[in-house]
């Protein structure tokens, strides 16, 4: 029985799934963040009044000193590529018809950033330090989700 089984039908099996669905609240700070994306096409940051750590996306509390954060402010959805990758396979190991670009974008005027797709740019043209800006869905199609941002594109 220590032989490796290559055909799953050789032994009796039972297929099943973990059939669990969820509805997540975005939380107190998340409410501010996603409303700004949906209503104003802006990103919100906040600051810890004690240690000055800057949070984008905003957090209700500072993880470093446990103070309640303050100074919620709108920022333009612009920043620089901190790092990026080009994905060639999907979650199940299937080759993507078109490779996808993903980047960690540090947002100007904040200590934080977000991970998102890059668009309107060829993989060979992306570089760390590139200036990018968010492309939002039209207001009527926004739902208050991180996908209200279609992707980030180079600032020209």
């Amino acid at each position: 029985m220590l032989e490796r089984i290559t055909n799953p039908e050789e032994v009796r099996t039972w297929s099943g799934a973990v059939p669990i669905e969820h509805v997540y609240t975005v939380g107190v700070a998340g409410e501010v963040f996603f409303r700004a994306i949906k209503d104003r096409g802006r990103l919100v940051a906040c600051v810890c009044p004690d240690c000055g750590t800057d949070y984008l996306p905003p957090r209700l509390y500072c993880e470093r000193c446990f103070a309640k954060t303050a100074d919620y402010r709108d920022l333009e959805a612009r920043g620089t590529v901190h790092t990026f990758t080009v994905a060639h396979f999907d979650l199940d190991g299937r080759r993507l018809a078109t490779p996808e670009l993903y980047a960690f974008v540090r947002i100007n005027g904040s200590g934080g950033g977000i991970v998102h797709r890059l668009g309107e740019v060829a993989a060979s043209d992306v570089y760390i330090g590139m200036e990018v800006e968010a492309v939002f869905l039209p207001p009527a199609r926004r739902t208050g989700s991180i996908l209200d941002i279609a992707y980030f594109k180079p600032v020209v």
Binding site: T25, G27, V28
Partner: peptide, 18 residues
């Protein structure tokens, strides 16, 4: 059903304990 995320709930309790 709390509006707070799990981590926000954790912070409220932890901060109160401290």
């Amino acid at each position: 059903r709390a509006q707070e995320t799990g981590r926000e709930l954790a912070w409220q309790a932890a901060r109160m304990a401290l």
